[in-house]
């Protein structure tokens, strides 16, 4: 029986997996912030974003903050992470899931009067329920679901 060589191969395999894991872990730690898809309004207000850079901002649309221009597709709304708020301006068609209280991710750059977005994406949460359950939750006014649809219904 090749007990010794078998043990050696087991050790090599173990070292391989451990070594690769450690290497990847260190790489991911080094890249930590860069892998995030978007900055939060707090990070933007704190000046963590390089000035003039093209980046994504993510947060929740503040209730009652959506202002549409009646003549064109101009829309502006406030984006919050509950700590800080940034005003976003956008011109175009918003995704179906865009509504107040909903999470969104916008791509664009900072201007004097707020964030000018070229693209707005809706972020879906991990909750799935039928409309009547959602209605019942709203009626009972004790929504345990974090970003529920408080703005217009579908």
């Amino acid at each position: 029986m090749m007990r010794a060589s078998r043990k050696r191969r087991l050790v090599i395999a173990g070292v391989l997996v451990t070594g690769v894991s450690v290497a990847v872990l260190l790489t991911l730690l080094a890249l930590r912030e860069n892998i995030n898809l978007f900055y939060s309004p707090s990070q933007v207000v704190a000046g963590e974003v390089v000035e003039g850079s093209y980046f994504r901002i993510g947060g929740m649309v503040v209730d009652g903050s959506v202002r549409r221009n009646p003549d064109d597709l101009q829309v502006s709304f406030d984006l919050t992470d509950t700590a800080e708020t940034v005003t976003v301006h956008y011109s175009g068609i918003l995704p179906d899931l865009f509504r107040e209280g909903q999470g969104i991710v916008a791509l664009g750059r900072l201007e004097d009067h707020g964030f000018r977005a070229d693209q707005v994406l809706a972020k879906h949460d991990e909750n799935y329920m039928p409309p009547e359950v959602s209605e019942a939750l709203k009626a009972a006014n004790r929504q345990p679901y974090a970003p529920a649809a408080t703005g217009g219904g579908s």
């Binding site: 994406l121 949460d125 799935y128």
Partner: peptide
């Protein structure tokens, strides 16, 4: 670990239900 556009786990999440039983 990171903020992503993709939502978090629904089924393996502990605690409050995130998906209706009929689904």
């Amino acid at each position: 670990w990171w903020n992503t556009l993709h939502q978090g786990a629904t089924i393996t999440k502990l605690g409050r239900p995130s998906i209706d039983i009929r689904m």
